[in-house]
Nucleic acid binder design. Structure first.
Lengths: 272, 272
DNA sequence: CGCCTGAAATTTACGATGTATACGTACATT
DNA sequence: AATGTACGTATACATCGTAAATTTCAGGCG
């Protein structure tokens, strides 16, 4: 019962502080990397664990992510990872968090341009809608940059309750809610609109990533899509439209749909 | 090299024919169930495997589904399942297929009422929109009846290319496309509209199933949602709106949003 | 300097999982 | 009754997540 009194994992939970003291100094060099080596490239850290995991998943897919494999990728035994993520599930949640951190980065770096189109003529806020679009586009970009991680967005969203999500995740949701409030929506309407927005964002990303390609190396389009194996006369519409479905909707499809989805909830005209 | 010449798994692929000849007769009884017992309750079949798997997942969650566990649920060794599903992934695809079969059932049984509101006055088809709503509602019902399977809808959709999907899946998609064609959309518009519809359906279901409850047994609502663990002043909007978010949008939220999502693509007025 | 302490990473071990391969067995057809 | 074949079992293996104990390292203190 007197377990875990000392030797507690440092940042296994959602603790923000990094467990390495001098973050980037290539330390452990003093001894000339003699024994045990402490990982291939200096000490471990939650950040290093997560970013390496993200690279691995991007490169080889979700199923390639195992504790041992990630460990070896970091030059470390599997069990060493348990200091930085409480378990595999926590690691996956960490990947989701990493995506949201990247989203935040993307949003921040794109923030210093055309600071404010200083309110046209009416009493309408001009800012909130374009801000929402900006968020949507950035979300789309992040998702397309890490398609292998996208399933986790759905999976973990159904697994970890809102209140337990990483701050990076919550803050993205808070951003959207703030914009909806700026649009003048009262609390109940904002809740409905928020659900619509998040449903659309997620659904659109999934729809756009939908696996269409059956045989990637085939030069002929129809064969690439595997059309020949679709029962020809049973699904004529589907067969006819598959090539068009294989194109991506892109970010503008996202923002257009976003306006449409928002339309029932906001007072003003949708676009102009 | 000369492997698998005989003894091929019968229906492991997407083969439709059932491998048992007399489907429901409680066969194998002639010998008085002497030796080996052939499973606890008569022979195996793809249908039995899938429906048992579905029950198991509904009851204990996706992570409870393992080959051995499902085997023992059927009174059979794990390897026996490989005659009916080529592997675990194929089994998961089978679960998705089962959901679509249930969708089909639900649609068929609800079909014999108010056969046709016989075209009001104009040249507009009145039927396609309400049919789409019907499909949406049925989809919602199926998803809510099997929430543990819903993640698979996303996961497998990104994993198996359209042309390889089960007929039950394809036919559901074909249905939607047929309705869009009936609405007068040309091919390209129909493709865009179809993407919007499927994105919305999927996203809405996910949004509505989003895990909000942190501590189910708590009588106080705020505690049940885990609000106390959400950094209070960092996410004020989110915190204020969480209780409203905990309510489900329900099927009417789905159909309303569906109309909104469709609005940019269809010619006529949205509702009337 | 050498020791000590707590943190970081390793070692070892266990049970569970997916599945390849080989084998048995019962049934339907002849 | 013989036989071929569909169906299920038996055995085995590599890999997985992770609990527990152990070793190794870094740095503050005498």
């Amino acid at each position: 019962m007197a377990r875990r009194k000392r030797d507690e994992p440092a940042g296994a939970g959602r603790d923000e502080r990094a467990p390495n003291r001098s973050a980037d100094h290539a330390q452990g060099r003093r001894t000339g990397r003699r024994a045990a080596d402490h990982g291939r490239y200096g000490r471990l850290s939650r950040e290093r664990v997560l970013s390496t995991a993200l690279e691995l998943v991007d490169r080889e897919g979700l199923s390639a992510l195992s504790m041992r494999r990630l460990g070896s990728e970091l030059g470390v035994e599997a069990m060493a990872l348990y200091r930085y993520a409480a378990g595999k599930d926590a690691l996956l949640d960490g990947l989701v968090e990493a995506l949201y951190l990247e989203l935040r980065e993307r949003l921040d770096e794109g923030a210093e341009e055309g600071a404010r189109p200083p309110a046209k003529g009416g009493a309408e806020e001009p800012g909130w809608r374009s801000e929402l679009h900006r968020i949507a586009r950035a979300t789309y970009q992040v998702a397309m940059a890490h398609p292998e991680v996208v399933p986790l967005l759905a999976t973990r969203m159904l697994a970890v309750p809102l209140a337990r999500r990483a701050p990076a995740v919550l803050s993205a949701q808070e951003d959207i809610l703030r914009l909806l409030a700026a649009a003048g929506l009262d609390e109940d309407t904002a809740a409905a609109a928020y659900r619509a927005v998040s449903a659309w964002l997620l659904g659109y990303v999934f729809a756009d990533l939908q696996a269409m390609v059956d045989n990637p190396d085939e030069p002929e389009a129809a064969f690439r899509l595997g059309l020949y194996r679709m029962p020809a006369h049973d699904f004529p519409e589907l067969r006819a439209i598959t090539p068009a479905l294989a194109e991506r909707g892109g970010p503008q499809g996202l923002t257009e749909g976003l306006d449409a989805v928002l339309d029932p909830w906001v007072p003003g005209p949708p676009q102009d």
